[in-house]
Design a binder for these strands. Structure first.
Lengths: 333, 333
DNA sequence: ATGAAAGCGCTAACAG
DNA sequence: CTGTTAGCGCTTTCAT
């Protein structure tokens, strides 16, 4: 057994209460006593048992995070943001990433329930009622990239609509009138909003409004590649494409090349996300930057801000168009 | 306060011990009693307090994972592998990603110590002595991508040497005699081993052995791009390049394009890792595939296999050359 | 300023 | 088969 507070107390010849006081920096302890305790603790290589402390204080200083399978860069950034912010408050992060169906998610959440003081969830097809039944009202929850829970939980997402609008608008500024969209997985909230932004822009700007210009993708590079064929079979051919994320845009780049055509000459292209590779693609990818690290930080922020506990709110983080080569511009950067 | 085992005991009109027995599936409990307890638990929406359980059993069923800033795809995959495997054993994963200097890492490990039953660490410039002082001998530890701890801890890494060797050998098979390498950060273990494999191949195969062919990079795409300039200033110019990871190879692709040259005609190229984008680059990237998810799974495997607790071992995971276009082949896939 | 003592919620002997 | 009881290691009144 490792050394306990009792051992330290004996070594320092004080009571356990005093040791506790010293270690928690609290209360008033005589300087000399304090020093003796500290020395004893050091000598015994004492490390307080977190579990006991958690039990006694009814706090774990731990938050749970549920993230589905998602693009690596996005996943990494968001995780980093969450962790950074949690660390600033001395909180720990318990993660769960691999879960696909609802049954599994349920058991994951259940097993987390006793250990965490809050939950951050990014889960495309989340059933709000299900979640409400599962967790106690007192547990703060932040939902990411979903609208489903807006009336019950705090939610946070990118400003997808405006971003998509800006992308299409920029394509229009280049003179394109027939702009297609490659959508993300229809079940995905970000995908839905980006599509909405596209439609809005098409309407507002008087572009070709033809539902065959909406090609369904699923956010993977492969879906980008295979979309090119469909795109080229359209008559008349669209002269520009808004891909709902950069992964697909990269796939499109490949597909266009395989078809013996050129971006942006034969097809102007704008992506979404600004993943690191976007800048290094050939041609470099014009895209809409999403503040992913910031999303993580803000989510944790919202969760740890107890005063706002489960006040239903919906906040969005601004996105920004980054002009590079694939749209026909010469690069910004 | 939430409902406790006491409440359930009262509701079911049994002792807390019986409730505990039922909930832990253990011991022999009369079927009827068992049912009554279950019903009571359900009715009260009872959820055992994990913290209390942890304290009592002296187990947390939680492992800590330390990962530095690293390429998103790699990070995501390894995390997923770890989580998958942990879940199979009903373990939780406590992560810590954002830490840069040793001081911070120390405090992170300290704060983890009381909460985890094992540690998985990927930390390029890890000081083994430091780690040994910090953690109790009894705590199982698995080190990733490092040789530093081979004599004290379990370690696990990719078979980098053989992979790099195969890459260079393949380039030689294409007839190249002057093959350069773009190295990763010299402090990185994977980078060191890949360099070692390169050198070995250069020797064995009688290729141009010229230290100016070793260009230092840092695994970022930008370092790949800027390496092209250095590469072209060499006389005579190398006809092929082995980039120590795909990110840099992608940067090289961009750099070569900017220089008005072509891959593989003017420069044959092989990368390392086989990140998802490698297949969709133009030209598609010949590379050495690393089983990243598997690395995560195996690391957790090793950690949870208590019987092997801190038996110093060093295992490697095989890598595999994937032929695509950038080396001059027509694609495998 | 310090100590004694009462639990936090649970599991695991030990009895019966 | 079930109940009683003693803690796990710590924090926190309540005394002194």
């Amino acid at each position: 057994m490792s050394t306990t507070i009792r051992d330290v107390a004996e070594e320092a010849d004080v009571s356990v209460a005093t040791v506790s006081r010293v270690l928690n920096g609290s209360d008033s302890v005589r300087a000399e006593t304090k020093e003796r305790v500290l020395k004893a603790a050091q000598a015994l290589d004492y490390l307080p048992n977190e579990t006991a402390r958690n039990l006694r204080t009814q706090k774990t200083r731990t938050v749970g995070v549920l993230l589905p399978n998602m693009h690596g860069e996005f996943f990494a950034q968001i995780t980093r943001g969450l962790d950074q912010r949690a660390k600033e408050d001395g909180h720990h992060v318990l993660v769960s990433n691999s879960h696909t169906d609802e049954t599994e998610a349920e058991s994951v959440i259940r097993s987390l329930l006793g250990r965490v003081e809050g939950l951050i969830i990014l889960w495309p097809r989340l059933d709000i009622g299900f979640l409400e039944d599962l967790v106690p009202d007192s547990l703060p929850i932040v939902l990411l990239s979903t609208s489903a829970g807006a009336s019950h939980f705090q939610t946070l997402s990118f400003e997808n609509r405006a971003g998509a609008y800006a992308a299409v608008e920029h394509l229009a500024e280049h003179g394109h009138e027939r702009v297609a969209i490659l959508t993300g997985d229809p079940v995905n909230y970000d995908a839905q909003m980006r599509l909405a932004g596209y439609r809005e822009a098409v309407q507002d700007l008087g572009l070709d409004d033809d539902s065959s210009l909406e090609i369904e993708g699923d956010f993977t590079q492969e879906s980008g590649r295979s979309a090119v064929e469909k795109l080229l079979s359209l008559t008349p051919s669209p002269t520009a494409l808004f891909a709902s994320n950069d992964s697909m845009a990269l796939g499109v780049l490949r597909g266009v090349h395989e078809a013996g055509l050129q971006v942006p000459e034969d097809l102007a292209l704008v992506g979404f996300d600004d993943i690191p590779t976007a800048r290094f693609a050939t041609p470099s990818l014009t895209t809409v930057r999403t503040p992913t690290l910031e999303l993580g930080r803000r989510a944790m922020d919202a969760l740890l801000d107890a005063s706002a506990s489960n006040q239903p709110t919906h906040r969005t983080l601004d996105t920004q168009l980054v002009r590079r080569e694939s749209c026909g511009c010469s690069s910004d950067e």
